[in-house]
């Protein structure tokens, strides 16, 4: 029986890249949940963006399509924009409460 992934044209390298992507995404998610430091939470979202980028590249490679790479460029753009804004906000928040803990802003939930 032909392995399932092989049927779809997934070679070993691509498969490893996808597994890496999944693992990174999961770790990023876990990091976002367990971290309390706002900056590191953002860092974890960057980790998830990384995972997405890897998946894009891998699938692009699999399909021999450069569209995946093009998309990663957009991801980079978004990541950069996000970093600029988010860090600005974090600094602002840090100045208000003198802490980076996300829990300091818990009362905003109303």
């Amino acid at each position: 029986m032909t392995p399932l992934l092989a049927q779809a044209g997934l070679t070993q390298g691509v498969t490893v890249a996808l597994v890496l992507s999944a693992a990174l995404f999961t770790i990023g998610l876990i990091g976002f949940l367990v971290r309390r430091n706002m900056i590191l939470m953002f860092l974890c979202t960057e980790l998830m963006l990384q995972a997405a980028s890897i998946a894009f590249i891998a699938f692009g490679r699999m399909r021999e399509d450069t569209g995946g790479q093009t998309f990663v460029i957009f991801i980079l753009t978004v990541a950069a924009a996000e970093a600029a804004l988010a860090l600005g906000l974090v600094v602002l928040l840090y100045r208000r409460r003198e802490t980076l803990s996300a829990e300091a802003w818990q009362e905003l939930h109303e």
Partner: peptide, 13 residues
């Protein structure tokens, strides 16, 4: 995942 994957690709190590 490698068990499920296809053959190795020469261009990807």
């Amino acid at each position: 995942s490698l068990k499920l994957a296809g053959p190795a690709d020469q261009s990807i190590s």
